[in-house]
Amino acid sequence: MIWQRKHILGMRDLEAEEINLILETAESFKEISTRTIKKVPTMRGKTVVNLFFEPSTRTRTSFEIAAKRLSADTINFTVSASSVSKGETLIDTARNIEAMNPDIIVTRHSAGGAPYLLSKYVNSSIINAGDGAHEHPSQALLDMLTVKEQKGKLKGLKLAIIGDISHSRVARSNIFGFTKMGVEVRVAGPATLIPVDIEKMGVGVFYRIEQAIEEADIIMMLRIQMERQKGQLFPTLREYSRFYSLDLKRLKLAKEDVTIMHPGPINRGIEISPEVADGPYSVILNQVTNGVAVRMALLYLLAGGGDLD
Protein backbone atom coordinates (compact mmCIF):
# COMPACT_ATOMS: atom_id res chain seq x y z
CA MET A 1 0.00 0.00 0.00
CA ILE A 2 1.07 3.60 -0.53
CA TRP A 3 0.92 6.00 2.40
CA GLN A 4 -1.48 8.86 1.58
CA ARG A 5 -2.38 10.41 4.91
CA LYS A 6 -1.18 13.88 5.82
CA HIS A 7 -2.09 14.02 9.52
CA ILE A 8 -2.24 11.56 12.41
CA LEU A 9 -5.22 12.78 14.41
CA GLY A 10 -6.52 9.59 15.96
CA MET A 11 -6.79 5.82 15.75
CA ARG A 12 -10.43 6.15 14.85
CA ASP A 13 -9.76 7.08 11.24
CA LEU A 14 -6.72 4.85 10.60
CA GLU A 15 -7.36 1.73 8.51
CA ALA A 16 -6.02 -1.65 9.63
CA GLU A 17 -3.74 -1.62 6.59
CA GLU A 18 -2.24 1.73 7.63
CA ILE A 19 -1.73 0.50 11.19
CA ASN A 20 0.16 -2.51 9.84
CA LEU A 21 2.37 -0.31 7.68
CA ILE A 22 3.19 1.94 10.67
CA LEU A 23 4.02 -1.06 12.86
CA GLU A 24 6.21 -2.70 10.21
CA THR A 25 8.02 0.57 9.56
CA ALA A 26 8.56 1.00 13.31
CA GLU A 27 10.02 -2.50 13.57
CA SER A 28 12.66 -1.53 11.01
CA PHE A 29 13.38 1.69 12.88
CA LYS A 30 14.13 -0.12 16.14
CA GLU A 31 17.49 -1.22 14.79
CA ILE A 32 18.73 2.37 14.45
CA SER A 33 18.43 2.99 18.18
CA THR A 34 20.79 0.07 18.84
CA ARG A 35 23.58 1.43 16.61
CA THR A 36 26.63 3.28 17.88
CA ILE A 37 25.67 6.16 15.60
CA LYS A 38 21.95 6.48 16.31
CA LYS A 39 21.13 8.82 13.47
CA VAL A 40 20.12 8.57 9.83
CA PRO A 41 19.99 11.53 7.41
CA THR A 42 16.42 10.90 6.22
CA MET A 43 14.78 14.08 7.50
CA ARG A 44 17.72 16.42 7.01
CA GLY A 45 16.40 19.93 6.47
CA LYS A 46 12.93 19.20 7.82
CA THR A 47 11.58 21.00 10.86
CA VAL A 48 9.41 19.43 13.53
CA VAL A 49 7.71 21.69 16.07
CA ASN A 50 6.50 20.22 19.35
CA LEU A 51 3.57 22.47 20.23
CA PHE A 52 2.52 21.41 23.72
CA PHE A 53 -0.32 23.15 25.54
CA GLU A 54 -0.22 20.60 28.35
CA PRO A 55 2.72 19.42 30.43
CA SER A 56 4.43 16.32 29.11
CA THR A 57 7.89 14.92 29.59
CA ARG A 58 7.93 11.45 28.17
CA THR A 59 5.84 11.97 25.04
CA ARG A 60 7.58 15.21 24.13
CA THR A 61 11.03 13.75 24.79
CA SER A 62 10.14 10.65 22.81
CA PHE A 63 9.02 12.71 19.79
CA GLU A 64 12.10 14.88 20.11
CA ILE A 65 14.49 11.91 20.18
CA ALA A 66 12.62 10.33 17.26
CA ALA A 67 12.93 13.50 15.17
CA LYS A 68 16.60 13.95 16.08
CA ARG A 69 17.48 10.36 15.15
CA LEU A 70 16.01 11.13 11.73
CA SER A 71 18.14 14.32 11.51
CA ALA A 72 15.17 16.71 11.60
CA ASP A 73 15.48 20.03 13.44
CA THR A 74 13.18 20.17 16.44
CA ILE A 75 11.77 23.15 18.28
CA ASN A 76 9.85 22.84 21.51
CA PHE A 77 7.08 25.31 22.06
CA THR A 78 5.47 24.88 25.44
CA VAL A 79 2.56 26.68 26.98
CA SER A 80 4.36 28.18 29.95
CA ALA A 81 6.78 29.96 27.63
CA SER A 82 4.23 30.94 25.02
CA SER A 83 1.87 33.79 24.32
CA VAL A 84 -1.17 31.64 25.06
CA SER A 85 -0.96 32.91 28.60
CA LYS A 86 -1.12 36.38 27.09
CA GLY A 87 -4.51 35.66 25.52
CA GLU A 88 -3.61 34.43 22.02
CA THR A 89 -6.05 31.92 20.51
CA LEU A 90 -5.02 28.42 19.46
CA ILE A 91 -5.41 29.22 15.78
CA ASP A 92 -3.37 32.43 16.02
CA THR A 93 -0.60 30.59 17.84
CA ALA A 94 -0.58 27.90 15.19
CA ARG A 95 -0.55 30.42 12.34
CA ASN A 96 2.41 32.16 13.90
CA ILE A 97 4.29 28.90 14.08
CA GLU A 98 3.21 28.04 10.57
CA ALA A 99 4.74 31.28 9.34
CA MET A 100 8.12 29.78 10.28
CA ASN A 101 7.47 26.91 7.83
CA PRO A 102 7.68 23.75 9.92
CA ASP A 103 6.99 20.48 8.08
CA ILE A 104 5.33 18.69 10.97
CA ILE A 105 3.64 20.00 14.11
CA VAL A 106 3.31 17.57 17.01
CA THR A 107 0.68 18.89 19.35
CA ARG A 108 -0.91 18.20 22.71
CA HIS A 109 -3.85 20.12 24.09
CA SER A 110 -6.27 19.76 27.00
CA ALA A 111 -9.25 20.15 24.66
CA GLY A 112 -10.36 17.16 22.59
CA GLY A 113 -10.39 18.03 18.87
CA ALA A 114 -7.70 20.73 19.06
CA PRO A 115 -5.35 18.88 16.65
CA TYR A 116 -8.23 18.43 14.19
CA LEU A 117 -8.97 22.17 14.36
CA LEU A 118 -5.29 22.95 13.74
CA SER A 119 -5.18 20.64 10.74
CA LYS A 120 -7.90 22.74 9.11
CA TYR A 121 -5.97 25.99 9.52
CA VAL A 122 -2.33 25.15 8.83
CA ASN A 123 -0.47 23.54 5.93
CA SER A 124 1.95 21.48 8.00
CA SER A 125 1.23 17.87 8.91
CA ILE A 126 -0.28 17.55 12.38
CA ILE A 127 0.42 14.69 14.78
CA ASN A 128 -1.87 14.43 17.77
CA ALA A 129 0.23 13.79 20.86
CA GLY A 130 -2.86 13.72 23.09
CA ASP A 131 -6.00 15.85 23.08
CA GLY A 132 -8.03 16.02 26.26
CA ALA A 133 -9.77 12.75 27.03
CA HIS A 134 -10.13 12.09 23.29
CA GLU A 135 -7.18 10.33 21.60
CA HIS A 136 -3.47 9.61 21.93
CA PRO A 137 -2.68 7.67 18.75
CA SER A 138 1.10 7.35 19.09
CA GLN A 139 0.63 5.74 22.51
CA ALA A 140 -1.85 3.20 21.10
CA LEU A 141 0.54 2.41 18.24
CA LEU A 142 3.48 1.84 20.57
CA ASP A 143 1.27 -0.38 22.73
CA MET A 144 0.28 -2.38 19.66
CA LEU A 145 3.92 -2.70 18.59
CA THR A 146 4.84 -3.95 22.08
CA VAL A 147 2.05 -6.53 22.08
CA LYS A 148 2.94 -7.67 18.56
CA GLU A 149 6.53 -8.16 19.68
CA GLN A 150 5.57 -10.08 22.80
CA LYS A 151 2.90 -12.29 21.27
CA GLY A 152 3.93 -12.40 17.62
CA LYS A 153 0.45 -11.34 16.53
CA LEU A 154 -2.53 -9.21 17.50
CA LYS A 155 -5.55 -11.03 16.12
CA GLY A 156 -7.43 -13.23 18.57
CA LEU A 157 -5.79 -11.87 21.76
CA LYS A 158 -7.70 -10.71 24.83
CA LEU A 159 -6.83 -7.28 26.23
CA ALA A 160 -8.11 -5.95 29.57
CA ILE A 161 -7.90 -2.20 30.20
CA ILE A 162 -8.36 -1.37 33.87
CA GLY A 163 -8.94 1.93 35.63
CA ASP A 164 -10.15 5.39 34.76
CA ILE A 165 -11.59 4.76 31.31
CA SER A 166 -13.64 7.98 31.21
CA HIS A 167 -10.70 10.35 31.39
CA SER A 168 -8.27 8.25 29.42
CA ARG A 169 -7.35 9.15 25.85
CA VAL A 170 -4.96 6.20 25.95
CA ALA A 171 -7.87 3.83 26.59
CA ARG A 172 -9.93 5.35 23.79
CA SER A 173 -7.15 5.18 21.20
CA ASN A 174 -6.27 1.65 22.26
CA ILE A 175 -9.89 0.53 22.00
CA PHE A 176 -10.16 1.92 18.46
CA GLY A 177 -6.82 0.44 17.45
CA PHE A 178 -6.89 -2.98 19.04
CA THR A 179 -10.50 -3.78 18.06
CA LYS A 180 -9.63 -2.89 14.46
CA MET A 181 -6.84 -5.47 14.56
CA GLY A 182 -9.12 -8.23 15.82
CA VAL A 183 -8.29 -8.06 19.54
CA GLU A 184 -11.05 -8.70 22.09
CA VAL A 185 -11.01 -5.67 24.39
CA ARG A 186 -12.51 -5.55 27.90
CA VAL A 187 -12.62 -2.56 30.18
CA ALA A 188 -13.10 -2.48 33.94
CA GLY A 189 -13.26 0.16 36.63
CA PRO A 190 -15.68 1.79 39.07
CA ALA A 191 -18.99 2.57 37.34
CA THR A 192 -18.29 6.28 37.77
CA LEU A 193 -15.14 5.98 35.67
CA ILE A 194 -16.68 4.03 32.79
CA PRO A 195 -18.33 6.16 30.10
CA VAL A 196 -21.98 5.53 29.29
CA ASP A 197 -22.47 3.55 26.06
CA ILE A 198 -18.85 2.46 25.82
CA GLU A 199 -20.17 -0.96 24.65
CA LYS A 200 -20.84 0.74 21.34
CA MET A 201 -17.09 0.87 20.77
CA GLY A 202 -17.16 -2.92 20.68
CA VAL A 203 -15.75 -3.65 24.13
CA GLY A 204 -16.90 -5.83 27.01
CA VAL A 205 -17.65 -3.87 30.19
CA PHE A 206 -16.90 -5.16 33.70
CA TYR A 207 -17.03 -3.53 37.09
CA ARG A 208 -14.69 -5.94 38.83
CA ILE A 209 -11.06 -6.29 37.84
CA GLU A 210 -11.17 -10.05 38.55
CA GLN A 211 -13.74 -10.66 35.83
CA ALA A 212 -12.00 -8.50 33.26
CA ILE A 213 -8.54 -10.02 33.60
CA GLU A 214 -9.69 -13.63 33.59
CA GLU A 215 -7.79 -15.43 30.81
CA ALA A 216 -6.44 -12.11 29.52
CA ASP A 217 -3.33 -12.13 27.29
CA ILE A 218 -2.58 -8.49 28.02
CA ILE A 219 -3.50 -6.28 30.96
CA MET A 220 -3.18 -2.54 30.62
CA MET A 221 -3.35 -0.59 33.86
CA LEU A 222 -4.27 3.09 33.76
CA ARG A 223 -3.35 5.84 36.16
CA ILE A 224 -6.10 7.65 38.06
CA GLN A 225 -6.01 11.07 36.45
CA MET A 226 -6.77 13.31 39.40
CA GLU A 227 -5.96 16.37 37.31
CA ARG A 228 -8.82 15.67 34.90
CA GLN A 229 -11.47 14.55 37.35
CA LYS A 230 -14.12 16.97 38.47
CA GLY A 231 -15.99 16.13 41.66
CA GLN A 232 -15.77 12.99 43.75
CA LEU A 233 -15.92 9.91 41.54
CA PHE A 234 -14.85 7.34 44.11
CA PRO A 235 -14.54 7.50 47.90
CA THR A 236 -10.79 7.28 48.47
CA LEU A 237 -7.65 6.29 46.59
CA ARG A 238 -7.10 3.65 49.23
CA GLU A 239 -10.44 2.06 48.52
CA TYR A 240 -9.84 2.27 44.77
CA SER A 241 -6.52 0.58 45.24
CA ARG A 242 -8.06 -2.19 47.31
CA PHE A 243 -10.64 -3.02 44.62
CA TYR A 244 -8.82 -2.26 41.39
CA SER A 245 -5.07 -2.53 41.81
CA LEU A 246 -3.19 -5.28 40.03
CA ASP A 247 -1.25 -7.36 42.53
CA LEU A 248 0.36 -10.80 42.38
CA LYS A 249 -2.75 -12.52 43.69
CA ARG A 250 -5.06 -11.10 41.03
CA LEU A 251 -2.46 -11.65 38.36
CA LYS A 252 -2.95 -15.42 38.71
CA LEU A 253 -6.39 -15.07 37.10
CA ALA A 254 -4.87 -14.03 33.79
CA LYS A 255 -3.14 -16.30 31.29
CA GLU A 256 0.15 -17.73 32.42
CA ASP A 257 2.15 -15.74 29.87
CA VAL A 258 0.22 -12.51 30.43
CA THR A 259 1.85 -9.22 29.43
CA ILE A 260 1.45 -6.23 31.76
CA MET A 261 1.44 -2.75 30.28
CA HIS A 262 1.09 0.77 31.61
CA PRO A 263 1.28 4.04 29.64
CA GLY A 264 3.06 5.77 32.54
CA PRO A 265 3.60 7.59 34.73
CA ILE A 266 2.83 4.76 37.15
CA ASN A 267 1.59 5.32 40.68
CA ARG A 268 3.20 2.47 42.55
CA GLY A 269 0.93 0.91 45.11
CA ILE A 270 -2.22 2.55 43.73
CA GLU A 271 -3.17 0.94 40.40
CA ILE A 272 -0.27 -1.50 40.29
CA SER A 273 1.77 -3.16 43.02
CA PRO A 274 5.56 -2.73 42.80
CA GLU A 275 6.05 -6.52 42.50
CA VAL A 276 3.89 -6.54 39.37
CA ALA A 277 5.32 -3.34 37.89
CA ASP A 278 8.89 -4.67 38.22
CA GLY A 279 7.97 -8.30 37.60
CA PRO A 280 8.88 -10.53 34.69
CA TYR A 281 5.61 -9.96 32.79
CA SER A 282 5.90 -6.21 32.85
CA VAL A 283 6.91 -4.59 29.54
CA ILE A 284 6.52 -1.02 30.75
CA LEU A 285 10.06 -0.06 29.73
CA ASN A 286 9.82 -1.86 26.38
CA GLN A 287 6.83 0.40 25.74
CA VAL A 288 9.04 3.44 26.19
CA THR A 289 11.70 2.05 23.81
CA ASN A 290 9.05 1.20 21.23
CA GLY A 291 7.62 4.70 21.59
CA VAL A 292 10.68 6.17 19.91
CA ALA A 293 10.50 3.66 17.03
CA VAL A 294 6.78 4.26 16.44
CA ARG A 295 7.25 8.03 16.46
CA MET A 296 10.14 7.74 14.02
CA ALA A 297 7.83 5.73 11.76
CA LEU A 298 5.09 8.38 11.96
CA LEU A 299 7.49 11.25 11.23
CA TYR A 300 9.06 9.29 8.36
CA LEU A 301 5.72 8.46 6.76
CA LEU A 302 4.43 12.02 7.06
CA ALA A 303 7.66 13.68 5.92
CA GLY A 304 8.07 11.70 2.71
CA GLY A 305 6.05 11.76 -0.44
CA GLY A 306 5.84 15.11 -2.21
CA ASP A 307 3.69 14.34 -5.23
CA LEU A 308 2.20 10.91 -4.93
CA ASP A 309 2.03 9.07 -8.21
Binding site: I2, W3, L21, E24, T25, E27, S28, F29, E31, I32, V40, P41, T42, L70, A297, Y300, L301, A303, G304, G305, G306, D307, L308, D309
Partner: peptide
Amino acid sequence: VDITLYRDDLSRKAVPRLRETT
Protein backbone atom coordinates in the same frame (compact mmCIF):
# COMPACT_ATOMS: atom_id res chain seq x y z
CA VAL B 1 21.65 -2.73 4.22
CA ASP B 2 18.38 -0.99 3.44
CA ILE B 3 19.24 2.33 1.83
CA THR B 4 15.77 3.86 2.04
CA LEU B 5 16.72 6.22 4.86
CA TYR B 6 19.78 7.48 2.97
CA ARG B 7 18.14 8.20 -0.38
CA ASP B 8 18.24 11.67 -1.91
CA ASP B 9 14.77 11.55 -3.46
CA LEU B 10 12.56 10.88 -0.43
CA SER B 11 10.42 13.97 -0.70
CA ARG B 12 10.02 13.54 -4.46
CA LYS B 13 8.28 10.18 -4.53
CA ALA B 14 5.72 8.17 -2.57
CA VAL B 15 7.21 7.00 0.73
CA PRO B 16 9.00 3.70 0.11
CA ARG B 17 8.43 0.75 2.42
CA LEU B 18 11.23 0.61 4.95
CA ARG B 19 12.90 -2.74 5.63
CA GLU B 20 15.41 -3.82 8.16
CA THR B 21 19.16 -3.27 8.03
CA THR B 22 21.13 -6.15 9.56
